[in-house]
C-alpha cells in the first residue's frame, strides 16, 4: 500500500492556504486532483509521485535516465574493480 504512482501535473489550482495547494494530475490520461502542499517546487509539466492523494516528490527528468546509462558506465570500468575480493 506504499506504492506511489508518477503522473503529469497539468495545472495548479490556486488556494490561499499553501497547505491546500492542489493540482490536476494526469495518470496516463486519467486525471485526478492531488494535494501539492509537499511539493511547493512543482510546476505544470513536471511529473510528480503521488500517494493517497498527495504529491510527495517531483521526478528528476535527468536522473530518470540513469537506470539506462548505468551499465554502460560500468562497462567503462576496468573489470578487476568489479569482481575483486
Amino acid at each position: 500500500m506504499c506504492l506511489a504512482v508518477p503522473g503529469e501535473l497539468m495545472e495548479i489550482i490556486a488556494d490561499d492556504d499553501p497547505m491546500m495547494r492542489r493540482g490536476r494530475v494526469s495518470f496516463a490520461g486519467v486525471v485526478k486532483e492531488v494535494n501539492l502542499a509537499y511539493v511547493p517546487e512543482a510546476r505544470p509539466g513536471d511529473f510528480v509521485t503521488v500517494h493517497v492523494g498527495f504529491a510527495l516528490s517531483v521526478v528528476d527528468k535527468e536522473d530518470a535516465a540513469l537506470v539506462f546509462q548505468f551499465l554502460a558506465e560500468q562497462d567503462g570500468e576496468p573489470p578487476s574493480t568489479e569482481a575483486s575480493g
Binding site: Y38, S57, V59, E82, A83, S84
Partner: peptide, 27 residues
C-alpha cells in the same frame, strides 16, 4: 558485497533525495 563494502547507495535517484521531503517530515 563482492567488494566487501557496506554503504548506503541510492538507486531510486529520480524520486528519492538524501534528506527526503522536508515539508512532509515537518507536518
Amino acid at each position: 558485497l563482492e567488494q566487501g563494502q557496506a554503504r548506503v547507495e541510492n538507486q531510486y535517484v529520480r524520486t528519492v533525495r538524501r534528506e527526503g521531503n522536508p515539508q512532509a517530515r515537518q507536518i
